[in-house]
């Protein structure tokens, strides 16, 4: 599902010897092995990387790494939001449609006010926050199952995306807008910087703050959390709002990169985000999972996308291979966990 990811980096210097092939494998100490058994997905990732390094000269180049990172950025934001939601035992199906709705909103705003770029970004994020707030309200206050609530909002947001543009794409966005995704800071593309910031913030949030602890607790056992005095409803509500807001930001990055907003933008992205979280070892029942896991899952999917592109595998077959690999990867994870507890 690598929708129109134009390679913004054309500098594939052929003088790029594949020197950094698996330095970690050199010291295969007992500790490393033990660790690999406990984190089978890391092993899968290493195998996938080694395979593509072997099969393609271009895979290991700096330019290609940038391509992967840039393609990953919009997915990264929604996968981070999805991680929070899944940790509470929920799921957010609406993020793909939120991308479309927020991108359309941003495009409309920036057409009217080309000089106020921040307003477009703010509007897009607010659209996501609003959709997330409705889902969160339905889940936390009305007791609607997350699957149903976000399925509903997925349809609503998608509908709004069509309404906003009368069903048509909005093209010809001002250069200032396309600069969001195509600017470089210290040689790194802005979306990649946003992604890394997102990772850092989320890792700290989930491991160093009371908020993170509450999310884990509410997902692990809502009743026990309530008896421990936590505000379960507020925590549930918040994760959908955050997920929506991040999806809104993701919509800005995507539409800025393709310099156009259209109602089918981001369609199906929620599935890749969910897949990333699950590959990362999170439990759909809630309470278990880490941001690091999601990052790993995200890059496993993105690496597959990229590597299969390089090997010129037809995109339809790519989908088949990716789907099978997702199931196989998680099955391996489950198998390892089960073997350990037998």
């Amino acid at each position: 599902m690598n929708v129109a990811a134009p390679s913004t980096t054309g500098q594939n210097s052929p003088a790029q010897p594949p020197e950094r092939r698996g330095p970690a494998l050199g010291r295969a100490g007992e500790a490393v092995r033990e660790w690999a058994i406990r984190n089978p997905m890391v092993l899968v990732m290493v195998l996938v990387i080694l395979y593509f390094l072997y099969m393609s000269d271009r895979f290991g180049t700096v330019g290609n790494l940038q391509t992967i990172a840039i393609a990953a950025a919009p997915f990264a934001l929604i996968a981070l939001g999805q991680t929070l939601v899944i940790l509470t035992g929920g799921i957010d199906l609406s993020v793909g449609s939120v991308i479309a709705a927020s991108a359309m909103t941003a495009a409309l705003v920036v057409k009217d006010h080309p000089e106020r770029m921040w307003l477009a970004v703010l509007a897009a994020v607010l659209v996501g926050v609003a959709v997330g707030a409705v889902s969160g309200f339905a889940v936390s206050r009305l007791g609607v199952p997350p699957f149903v609530a976000t399925l509903g909002m997925m349809t609503v947001a998608s509908g709004l995306a069509y309404v906003l543009g009368n069903g048509a794409p909005i093209n010809g966005l001002p250069p200032g807008y396309s600069a969001i995704a195509n600017t470089k800071v210290f040689g790194i593309d802005l979306p990649v910087i946003i992604m890394i910031l997102g990772f850092a913030i989320m890792i700290v949030l989930m491991s160093r703050t009371t908020y993170g602890l509450r999310v884990y607790a509410v997902g692990g056992n809502p009743l026990a959390s309530r008896i421990a005095g936590l505000n379960v409803n507020r925590t549930l509500f918040s994760v959908y709002v955050i997920s929506g807001g991040l999806a809104g930001l993701s919509g800005v990055i995507l539409s800025s990169r393709v310099i156009s907003a259209f109602p089918s933008l981001g369609a199906g992205y929620e599935l890749d985000a969910i897949a990333a979280v699950v590959i990362g070892g999170a439990s759909l029942m809630g309470g278990r999972g880490t941001v690091w896991g999601t990052i790993l899952g995200l890059f496993l999917i993105q690496t597959l996308n990229n590597g299969l592109d390089l090997l010129i595998v037809p995109s339809y077959w790519q989908k088949v291979i990716k789907g099978v690999l997702i199931i196989a990867a998680v099955a391996l994870d489950v198998w390892v966990v089960r073997r350990r507890s037998r």
């Binding site: 997902g219 056992n221 026990a224 959390s225 008896i227 005095g229 936590l230 309470g287």
Partner: peptide
């Protein structure tokens, strides 16, 4: 198990849950 503990969390997290403030 149903109302007292969050089984997926460790002793430290469970043990500090009511007094996070």
């Amino acid at each position: 198990k149903g109302a007292g503990l969050v089984l997926s969390m460790d002793v430290l997290d469970n043990g500090s849950l009511p007094h996070l403030k």
